[in-house]
Nucleic acid binder design. Sequence first.
DNA 1: GTACGATACGGAGGGCCCCGCCGTTTAGCA
DNA 2: TGCTAAACGGCGGGGCCCTCCGTATCGTAC
Lengths: 183, 183
Amino acid sequence: MRADAQRNYARLLSVAAEEIALNGADASLEQIARLAGVGSGTVRRHFPNRHALLAAVFRERVESLHAHAADLTGRPDARAALLEWLTAVTTSAATIRGLAVALNRDCGLEPGPAHEHCATSRLLEAGEPLVRQAAGALAPGVTVADLIALITGIALATENHPDPAEEANRLLGLAFSGISPSA
Amino acid sequence: MRADAQRNYARLLSVAAEEIALNGADASLEQIARLAGVGSGTVRRHFPNRHALLAAVFRERVESLHAHAADLTGRPDARAALLEWLTAVTTSAATIRGLAVALNRDCGLEPGPAHEHCATSRLLEAGEPLVRQAAGALAPGVTVADLIALITGIALATENHPDPAEEANRLLGLAFSGISPSA
DNA sequence: GTACGATACGGAGGGCCCCGCCGTTTAGCA
DNA sequence: TGCTAAACGGCGGGGCCCTCCGTATCGTAC
């Protein structure tokens, strides 16, 4: 990768992060190009579509959640470990504008090599051991995918709330323990 | 309202319903105008913004859910009644393309007279008695708003699933009884 | 230090969309 | 039948996405 390409890539990533934080996942790619001082073609060269840009912007955060999950595996209280991780994911999804949308969208991609390395897949990988560990304490049939879908949904639904993270975590807590537990 | 205006309104509503079912809540307003055989100005005259169009398109369905809730109040098993209604709402939100997005968006409106009569408010009104009845069987602090938010989120998150309604209801069931009930 | 090939860049152009506006048509009443 | 207010259609401005291609720049080989 040429030096100027690297510079532009970094600039774009940083500007895109700000712009997405400001305007959500539908931020204007042309505006990002303008703010980064590059042509619109350069954006599309580095990121062939919006999804690629979102993935790149959120990559670090997703990796950090991945690492967090790794830290939690093997904890004596598997249920608490799972809940801690789910809370961390929820907080990120509800706090970081655009992340929930990005997670939600890459569920709609056709399978393929790109799909295997997308943010959602990384989260599924990360959470799978935690779910397996806690399986005994979970309702039958619960999968990591269910939990990630639920969190994504909760984050999307609380986007307009005054305090998204708090509200999202409250809903997560309700769903985890049960809205109407006395079955 | 003049006769021609009524005709156009009806045509627009019907065309919009099809087009939204096909392309989601972001369907092109100009395309709707074209299909209805009217000018784009006519669309904007009847529906000053996209949200107004969505509200009108989904009005009947929301009213039907409202009525369903009324039918269920007073049932002996309050918990089952609530769950039945939530299931109906979930099925609608997951099946009818664009409805979940519409519900999610009108949470973001500034308060005002329009906000009081929006689809979400109608659902809140409808569900409130059911929640009150079932309060004894619910986790402390649960509100109708929580449940509607959760359902909206679930519907958004399962939009890309092969069978959205089934998956959405499965997630609803999990959240209702608890993902990890043994608290 | 220079010359060259590959790589990356920028921006113009086409298509679509939303939105505001205004001249024209038409429905409904007198 | 004539009139007026309501409703209509579509034009023009602005924005965005996307493709494409001539140009500038980087890095290397000599």
